[in-house]
Design a protein around this nucleic acid. Structure first.
Lengths: 347, 347
DNA sequence: AATTTTCATGCAAACCTTTGCATTCACTTT
DNA sequence: AAAGTGAATGCAAAGGTTTGCATGAAAATT
């Protein structure tokens, strides 16, 4: 009864010592005698003493908690990142508080306030697709709360960042489409003010230009959200063009499946009539039929590294190290939703 | 500078009042004069005063935090439940601490200890597939921390429970397979000591028996984990039987896709040669080809209700209401991975 | 034997907030 | 004018822990 709620004072009374001695004994303070230490530790063990984190937090002005803000967790992408974060933070002394912004700037600001109020010791954040202004993060930084940005960049914000080279991923994908013989390559892009979206678009544009393939304005559409249903209408629009594309590079796998869905519905054969490539390599993408060609990202590692950097930053608080910028390389995964590129093209 | 870290004392000095007066003014205590109240509130607003949750927690012996323990979040199932939980808890005064047990009993016990140490005000839990003993939850309850169990039951544990009628879901699925003309129906079940797995198996068995369809021991296999790769070997084994099944009812969608994968690989046509039905209705299941027949569960609602019950329980702490048992009804969703049942069978 | 050194422990403050009780002051009542 | 009332505010304790400083006793030095 009352287990786990024993206090230092309780133990002090029991042992006829003062709370301070008990505290020092538990923390192996050199000035405490060995017999006392042993007695205290035994009792603490027996009574399953757990120091009260609130008392500690109050004293040390820190909560031993780190906050994580993500737009959502129902996609494999973010849930895998979070799993990586958990696997690093879990064994540490810190607790994690995961918050969902639902891709809303307003909710994100509210969450930052909530976390700030909680006195979190640091936060990991991937901004919502609506977020253009980063002052809420700056306010945290001014309060000495380190911020690590992951996956989606916050341009102009000075912070540690762990990103993915979306430009390269897109470039690889589009260049491969070109080499495989496609020439009318369309792009289903994401919400416009997201760094990832922008870089994927730029990668697409550059790959087209560098390879002398003309693009058309009507070949580039942007979806409002990242889920399957958000891609259906734009995909339909693209496929209904007079000059039907022979390839679509989609901003992620869900949107790519929208395109596959629509293409099939319109009687197009994949990949004979049209190649489709996604981004993210969600685990089920390989089980679709056709299985989806896509760009793989090291999501789990991304989560782990972000968490490690934050822990390091918290530990070194004060020392004004330069902010880190880590960029992971994504990799093209070719499956059956796109044509094979001719083998004889070498170098 | 130092914003958000203003204390009552700071404001008291500034206004030449005592901290107690400032506190009372902010809490609209009747004994405080209107002028004072106004002045205090204005200053608090200006300085963006945020009461220190640790001081409050220390005083009230509660953390305003609720813990959530789930086996994993990379599947849509649990991430959607968590989204439901968040949507209920988020707007409340409580914070959420999400923890992943990774389907490990040991880690689950560690997490419970961590949350207990944190003095969470309640927990929501779906036990790991290894968990057979629930004393770690009972210890929490003994410390007056309410526990709400969701999706996966903890048989013998007295607590509020929000479950799904897995038996009914399985029964519906299997009876439908029988009516559609299948007679050699196999089952790919989950880890054996999980309530959901057991009930799905029982639903399968009963549907077979009640409809006079014999089952064979060799038709029932159990997988070790819930992901695609865990299902491949068992599916292969099933399909390699001399007496090849003409239907497979899988414990979830991922395992169902393993079966589809293997069936295709072995040259079987779906659903002509073999029908396959899953469980969960993950969002991409409808985009597979063949699109997956499966059993839908109200995951989001399940998350929301669990959270509501916990909040209620925390509020009514002390009053010894009976534990609630809520059971959601799942629904069969018929797509193209299984034969259509003859329309002329009525009543 | 007197003094210094060493060792082990206790006291009290601090962290921030809430709250029961005491205090102060102005105003009303007799 | 004295006493009583009421309103507005302050004091102090509590909650659990850590830590600088002080205290006490015993051991070692002179």
């Amino acid at each position: 009864m009352g287990k786990g709620r024993v206090t230092l004072k309780d133990m002090a009374t029991e042992l006829k010592l003062s709370p301070s001695t008990v505290s020092r004994a538990l923390n192996d303070h050199p000035a405490i005698g060995d017999k006392t230490k042993k007695a205290v530790k035994e009792l603490a063990n027996e009574l399953d003493y757990q120091p009260n984190p609130m008392a500690l937090g109050l004293l040390q002005k820190k909560s031993n908690t780190i906050g994580v803000i993500v737009p959502e967790i129902t996609s494999h992408f973010f849930s895998a990142i979070i799993t990586g974060i958990q696997d690093v933070i879990g064994p540490s002394e810190y607790n994690i508080m995961i918050c969902l912004s639902n891709e809303s700037y307003e909710e994100e600001v509210t969450l930052v306030k909530k976390l700030s109020k909680m006195r979190v010791d640091g936060i990991l954040v991937s901004p919502s697709s609506e977020t253009k202004d980063f002052n809420h993060f700056r306010r945290l930084q001014n309060n000495d709360v380190p911020v690590v940005v992951f996956d989606r960049d916050c341009p102009g914000l000075e912070a540690d960042k762990v990103l993915v080279d979306d430009y390269s991923g897109a470039y690889q994908a589009v260049e491969y489409l070109i080499r495989s013989g496609c020439s009318k390559i369309a792009h289903l892009g994401g919400p416009l003010n997201l760094s990832t979206t922008k870089h994927r678009l730029q990668g697409y544009l550059d790959a087209m230009e560098k390879n002398g393939v003309p693009t058309r304005e009507e070949y580039i559409l942007h979806v409002d959200g990242f889920s399957h249903k958000d891609g259906l209408k734009p995909a339909k629009k693209l496929l209904a063009l007079e000059n039907t594309p022979d390839a679509i590079f989609a901003v992620n796998d869900s949107i790519a499946t929208s395109a596959i869905h629509m293409a099939k519905k319109m009687g197009l054969r994949i990949p004979e009539d049209i190649s489709i490539v996604g981004f993210d390599d969600e685990p089920h993408s390989s089980y679709f039929s056709p299985s989806l060609s896509t760009v793989w990202q090291p999501v789990y590692s991304l989560g782990m590294l972000s968490a490690r950097i934050l822990l390091q930053r918290i530990k070194d608080r004060g020392s004004n190290d330069e902010f880190r910028l880590e960029i992971f390389k994504p990799e093209l995964v070719i499956r059956t939703s796109s044509r094979k590129e001719p083998i004889n093209i070498v170098g």
